[in-house]
Design a protein around this nucleic acid. Structure first.
Lengths: 135, 135
DNA sequence: TTGTAAAGATACCATAACAGTATCATTATG
DNA sequence: CATAATGATACTGTTATGGTATCTTTACAA
């Protein structure tokens, strides 16, 4: 199972790298060199982050990407949602057609509990908090 | 994401059905009629449960399956493991080749925490506890 | 003693999600 | 105005999931 897929993962690492780099603008080329990721894929990821307002982009020579907000304000929950949609521990299964006893389904209730816990955790975890090493 | 895949789900429902039926032996045919599941697939699921000691099987006419243990002793964690392998919220991602900073990776630690929580929950949830409705 | 209704074993198949590539257009900058 | 960057989009390979299909084996009951 993957709570976090590859594109979300790349997004997280790229954002961390950008914060640590302390530069005005960071290009895909630089990120690829620093992080050993497949370039075209990472580009697609960053374009998506731009569309969703996490990054700002600058085209043309010396262009690149910049965080649109402080790293304290960028949460894992949001990033996951961007690339994977709403966070769910269980998809499709608990629908009427598949699970006729959905209303009384104890399993569904329990999984919903776990889901809430997971979501709240992910929503309290920011890029900034990932960078506080040794603490 | 699917904490529980279809085969695990079918296994859970079949086991619940068998407990509620109060019969000595329950055949696949009966389960298919009662639960509206694809027969061949369910058969494969039950065969697996038999191999793993969750069910006992009887071949031949009037044959079928019986729980090998009390429903209080059959846990979701175990069922998931049978069909999906060890429970993981995150696979493959946190390996050296992909995540060079694995030792200090804060994200990994946080996800490991969530994983432990989830596993402990699933391991405290038995077939019997799913059947205690209204409580 | 034999037909039949069950499970056992295995091989095969369709679909969708994931991970990634390839290409061409657009836009700043020097 | 060449070039180095992003924007947009279409395509592709692989794998996991969710099944089918088929043949074998076994036991009961008439």
């Amino acid at each position: 199972m993957n709570l976090i897929t590859r594109n979300t993962d790349y997004a997280i690492r790229a954002l961390c790298y950008m914060v640590k780099s302390n530069k005005d603008v960071v290009s895909v080329r630089e990120l690829v060199e620093g992080l050993k990721m497949p370039g075209p894929f990472l580009r697609k990821v960053l374009q998506e982050l731009n569309k969703k307002g996490i990054l700002k982009s600058y085209k043309g020579k010396n262009g690149g990407f910049v965080l649109a907000d402080r790293p304290e304000k960028i949460y894992m929950g949001k990033l996951i949602e961007i690339f994977q949609g709403p966070i769910k521990l269980q998809e499709h299964t608990f629908k009427k057609e598949i699970c006729p006893e959905i209303k009384s389904c104890v399993l569904k209730k329990k999984i919903d509990e776990m889901e809430k816990y997971t979501i709240s955790r992910l929503n309290s975890l920011s890029i900034a908090s990932l960078l506080k090493t040794g603490k």
